[in-house]
């Protein structure tokens, strides 16, 4: 929706460094996300993928390096500020409100996006109801919109997270394992939807995913991480042929050998 400069990528991450005590969880990672493109981060467990997401979205400010959105630095900003700049995100462990209905979960994100949070006199029940319903229709949850979020199946929560992340009409979507815990058919469906949204609305998508088939069929570019470091970046074909990637994934290191089995 926002016109993009053809030369400047939507998101630029430069030499990102995040430290947990003595551990370098992310060590000098650089990557770009262009509008309308799907970029996947892959790597074994503990490679630093989620930490990357948290550093970009402000949940865990980076210790060094820079995060640029449209060429402007957003590193170190609060998550709520980054949200207001048009960044939506989903969480690896779903973060929804169990005591609200599905629709209310989306409504409250819309209320915040439209800056109506500090209105003690406005009834939230009616605010942005249609808009919320449209988002729920998009992800195919119309039938469940009045159910309490606390009783949903895990796969449905994951889909709901997407609807919430879309509430601020994001230009950049950060999806940390959006399909973990879903059935294979559901996964393909959800990620196909994400790909369609990215293309239609010009949303840049950065995602992690354990299902290698999805990654290689949908991602425009793949970033491979291992132990906090960037191992390789390239198109699916380049990555597939990279011997170092094969080494990690085919298990020459015995401790990473089983890391990429699909969750059952």
């Amino acid at each position: 929706m926002t016109p993009q400069h053809p030369t400047a990528p939507l998101l630029q991450v430069r030499d990102l460094l995040v430290r947990y005590g003595e551990t370098l969880a992310v060590n000098g990672v650089s990557l770009d996300v262009e509008a309308g493109k799907l970029i996947a981060i892959i790597g074994p467990n503990g490679a630093g993928k989620s930490t990357c997401f948290n550093a970009i979205s402000g949940q865990r400010p980076p210790n060094a390096g820079e995060v640029l959105l449209d060429g402007k630095s957003i590193s170190g900003l609060l998550p709520e500020t980054i949200f207001s700049l048009g960044v939506g995100r989903t969480f690896q462990v779903t973060a929804t409100v169990p005591t609200m209905t599905v629709r209310e979960n989306v409504q409250v994100a819309l209320i915040s996006y439209h800056r109506r949070t500090f209105s003690p006199w406005v009834s939230a029940r009616r605010l942005y109801r249609e808009e919320a319903d449209r988002l729920l229709e998009l992800i195919g949850m119309t039938g469940q919109r009045d159910r309490a979020c606390g009783v949903l199946a895990y796969g449905d929560l994951k889909r709901l997270e997407l609807a919430i992340a879309l509430a601020n009409a994001p230009r950049l979507l950060l999806m940390d394992e959006p399909t973990a815990g879903m059935a294979p058919a559901e996964r393909n469906e959800l990620m196909a939807l994400v790909a369609r949204l990215a293309a239609d609305r010009g949303i840049g998508v950065l995602f992690t995913e354990h299902d290698i088939d999805i990654v290689f069929s949908l991602a425009h570019r793949i970033v491979v991480m291992n132990r906090g470091q960037l191992l390789a970046t390239g198109t699916p074909d380049v990555i597939r042929a990279d011997p170092r990637v094969q080494e990690i994934y085919l298990g020459r290191d015995d401790h990473t050998g089983s890391a990429e089995k699909q969750p059952s």
Binding site: Q59, E80, S84, T96, V97, Y113, I164
Partner: peptide, 12 residues
């Protein structure tokens, strides 16, 4: 219920 979600949807 979910401070992390609150921050992620722009709630201070």
């Amino acid at each position: 219920d979910s401070p992390a979600r609150a921050a992620a949807i722009g709630i201070d």
